[in-house]
Amino acid sequence: MQIEPFTLHVPQTQIDDLHRRIDMTRWAEQETVDDWSQGTPLAALRELVRYWREEYDWRRCEAWLNATGQFTARIDGLSIHFLHVRSRHENATPLVLTHGWPGSILEFRNCIAALTDPEAHGGTAEDAFHVVIPALPGFGFSGKPTQAGWGVERIGRAWGELMRGLGYARWFAQGGDWGSAVTTAIALQKVEGCAGIHLNMPIARPQPEDLAAPSPTEVRALTALQHYQDWDSGYSKQQQTRPQTVGYGLVDSPVGQAGWIYEKMWAWTDNAGRAEDALDRDAILDNIMLYWLPAAGASSARLYWESFGSFAAKDIDLPVAVSAFPKEILPTPRKWAERHYRKLVHWGDMEKGGHFAAWEQPEAFVRELRIAFGKMR
């Protein structure tokens, strides 16, 4: 495998084009309600976009990416962009972290230092990881598939190729959202080298007996699942069935792309009413830029078309650890998960945090990974 260092420098013409498109926006009228029930409110999006246009500095994020360690590898005919940060401890545990939608490799930004240099962040040398963070195909600066077939199973195999190409014979995998589906696919296929997985969005569903006499925990989960189905899943049906159609608007309009993502930053985080209660505004825009700059609105949506059916409960024989965050959009009680995770070595019920676990609660996320993979070493 040919692995090449990657330096990112976005031409100023692209930044100028972004600003021009923002300036030329034809805004929709204000919603007829005083909340988010019709989608991203006009006032909230206008303020985010104003900041984006007038104060936000992309070069800060670009510099961080370049300083962290970016690479590309050609795997199965596709260029995969990834971060690779080795610990100073040579015998650290290799770990591949997989993001989801509408996230990016930046979800893990505030976890990398603690994972690779644990002694400087409340841990011990035994907690050290070599960290690999690939961008999903069609996301960020990874290549865009030109033919169908890049579902989560193929991505899982590609991650195995990547870890082998980096010289890692035994490694662990972690993920939430689509990262959970990819990580689950790695375990189901028993991809060579993977010794165990950690999920912050476990996948399991209730049985008839659960529905007949649900516990309080199950009632909360069922209520959340029903809310998602009724009020929060329209984006997924569109991306699952017509990713190309929605992609035209996302690729052409920065305000459209921002509104599409910003709503989920609000709906899926553990916040007090604003997305910015849970996530830094600059970090939100950094993440949006990883969709806007590479024009990834359509290519990222296609993963739903390829693999939405992969979000199904399946039996896993490898060691599994789970961290359950209270504001997860698709919560799974431990009782449901235990039916499928035959070697469940750790279950952590977290006090705070939502769908973007590593992004919202990096310290708790790191602690959970140390505990979880410590039980698998």
Results as ranks from 00 to 15, higher is better:
Leu318Asn: 05
Pro41Asn: 10
Glu4Trp: 09
Lys144Gln: 10
Pro137Met: 14
Gln226Phe: 04
Val10Asp: 06
Ile22Asp: 05
Phe139His: 14
Val33Gly: 00
Arg86Phe: 05
Arg281Ala: 00
Gln2Cys: 04
Ser233Val: 00
His19Phe: 05
Gln244Trp: 07
Ala372Val: 08
Lys314Val: 10
Ser236Tyr: 06
Arg86Asp: 06
Met1Pro: 09
Gln229Lys: 15
Ile22Tyr: 03
Arg377Trp: 03
Gln12Arg: 13
Pro137His: 14
Leu369Ile: 07
Trp27Asp: 10
Arg367Met: 14
Leu199Trp: 06
Met163Glu: 04
His198Cys: 03
Glu29Trp: 11
Asn91Gln: 14
Ala148Arg: 13
Thr269Ile: 08
Leu162Lys: 13
Thr124Gln: 11
Gly143Gln: 00
Ala158Gly: 13
Val96Ile: 04
Leu290Met: 13
Gly193Cys: 05
Gly234Leu: 04
Met24Ile: 04
Thr72Trp: 08
Gly77Leu: 04
Phe373Glu: 09
Trp159Gly: 10
Ala63Lys: 15
Trp268Gln: 06
Thr146Phe: 06
Gly297Asn: 03
Gly140Met: 01
Asp282Gly: 01
Pro319Val: 02
Arg281Asp: 00
Gly140Leu: 00
Asp76His: 15
Val251Leu: 01
Ser300Thr: 03
Arg20Lys: 15
Glu29His: 15
Lys314Leu: 10
Val322Asn: 04
Ala358Val: 02
Lys352Cys: 10
Leu162Met: 14
Leu293Arg: 08
Gly69Ala: 08
Gln147Pro: 02
Ala113Asp: 09
Ile284Met: 11
His89Met: 07
Ala114Pro: 02
Ile261Gly: 00
Asn271Arg: 12
Arg377Tyr: 02
Thr40Pro: 07
Ser180Ile: 05
Glu306Gly: 13
Ser104His: 10
Ile197Met: 01
Gln238Asn: 13
Gly249Met: 03
Asp317Val: 00
Gln174Arg: 09
Trp359Ser: 06
Leu285Asn: 01
Leu95Arg: 11
Leu45His: 05
Thr72Ser: 06
Ala278Ser: 01
Pro11Ile: 01
Leu188Ile: 05
Lys335Glu: 09
Arg302Met: 12
Ala372Gln: 12
Pro137Trp: 09
Pro331Asp: 09
Ala44His: 03
Phe139Asn: 10
Gln14Glu: 13
Ile371Asp: 09
Asn287Phe: 00
Arg164Tyr: 06
Ala125Lys: 14
Ile329Cys: 05
Leu115Glu: 03
Trp231Tyr: 12
Ala357Lys: 09
